[in-house]
Nucleic acid binder design. Structure first.
Length: 231
DNA sequence: CTCTTCTAGGTTGGTAAGGT
DNA sequence: ACCTTACCAACCTAGAAGAG
């Protein structure tokens, strides 16, 4: 079936169905990364833009796979594309190219040289996937461990069980970054990353300088720290 | 000999069941 | 509820077989 015959129910409408739907402008940035049609095998029937819309719906609503609305492709199809793209690193590739585009739009070098690392514990569903108990935050679930550049765009992400301490999870995150962002040299972190253990692990990874941003003496409760707030 | 039709084997897409 | 796996369907290619 030629691609023009693929049903695209909502494109003619003035307003997008869902707030999370891609605009034409956004799709133009992502479309070049989409896998092209294969010469052999069963031809694709599903519009990949609809797959991306479904993934964005999932991400912004926080719903379960099975709760995906019926006017989007079948959840099992969306799910399969998601797992494949995650496995192939396509999602990361798209994210990185968007980061570079956004940085250039801001008049910066495409590749960041400095970043900020932090983690956040997230309560998960009772079943499925890895999970652990973060005693400090009293949360049973996973940690999303991220590094952002100095304007807050995500350059690195590792998800692990919440019972893993920040300083133990950090090497995996930083290692994953250096492959794709070789110009990153300086990373800011909070007190949770202090200590000789992580310092030693970093020496093995490469030329990364980790700077601990300390809370000012006498600070009470939440206080915005220089450099760190952006993450 | 050329062209068409048939068929087996291979690849990929979509779905559902089942394990954890 | 998440994620993997198995399975069927759709399609392509190449070669065999048949028609003219």
């Amino acid at each position: 079936m030629p691609w023009t015959e693929i049903t695209r129910p909502h494109y003619e409408r003035r307003c997008p169905r869902y707030a999370s739907d891609l605009t034409d402008e956004e799709w133009a940035l992502i479309a070049p990364h989409m896998p092209s049609a294969n010469r052999i095998g069963r031809p694709r029937k599903t519009d990949l833009r609809e797959i991306v819309n479904a993934l964005l719906y999932m991400a912004s609503s926080g719903g379960a796979w099975r709760l995906l609305p019926k006017d989007l492709p079948p959840f099992s199809t969306v799910q399969k594309y998601f797992y494949r793209w995650r496995e192939e690193g396509l999602l990361r590739t798209i994210s990185n190219s968007l980061v570079m585009a956004a940085r250039e739009r801001e008049g910066r070098e495409a590749s960041p040289t400095a970043g900020v690392i932090d983690s956040q514990s997230v309560k998960t569903t009772e079943r499925g996937g890895i999970r652990g108990f973060d005693a400090g935050k009293k949360i049973n679930g996973r940690k999303r461990h991220i590094v952002v550049d100095t304007i807050g765009l995500m350059v690195g992400l590792v998800v692990h069980a919440a019972d893993i301490q920040d300083r133990d999870g950090a090497p995996a995150v930083l290692k994953s970054i250096l492959k794709r962002w070789p110009w990153l040299r300086h990373v800011f972190a909070d007190g949770g990353y202090a200590g000789p253990k992580l310092k030693g692990a970093l020496r093995k990874i490469g030329k990364l300088v980790l700077e601990i941003v300390k809370r000012p003496n006498g600070a009470k409760g939440f206080e915005v720290l220089p450099r760190r707030w952006v993450v």
